[in-house]
Amino acid sequence: MCLGIPMRIVVRDGNDAVAESSSVRKRIRLDLLEDAAVGDYVLIHAGYAIERIDEREALETLDLIRRVYEAGRRDDPT
């Protein structure tokens, strides 16, 4: 119900926009994220962009997980 789908904004006309993810294109509204721009990745819920996805935070989290993974492998004698 509170599902949020990450999509990239490809067209913007006022608060109307089109966003896409893999092959799906959807009309969305930007009323809740007015400074969003074409090219931004945003989280879509019920047809509205509710937040921008922060690339730096995303990559930091992934790097952290990779470090855990590598540490795990070093500890593993097999």
């Binding site: 119900m1 509170c2 949020g4 509204r29 009323d31 809740l32 819920h45 019920a46 047809g47 509205y48 509710i50």
Partner: peptide, 16 residues
């Protein structure tokens, strides 16, 4: 129907 996540888009629609 919904929680905060859904209330926000609904509010935006109602205000428009």
């Amino acid at each position: 129907v919904g929680f905060e996540t859904t209330a926000a888009p609904i509010a935006a629609a109602i205000a428009a």
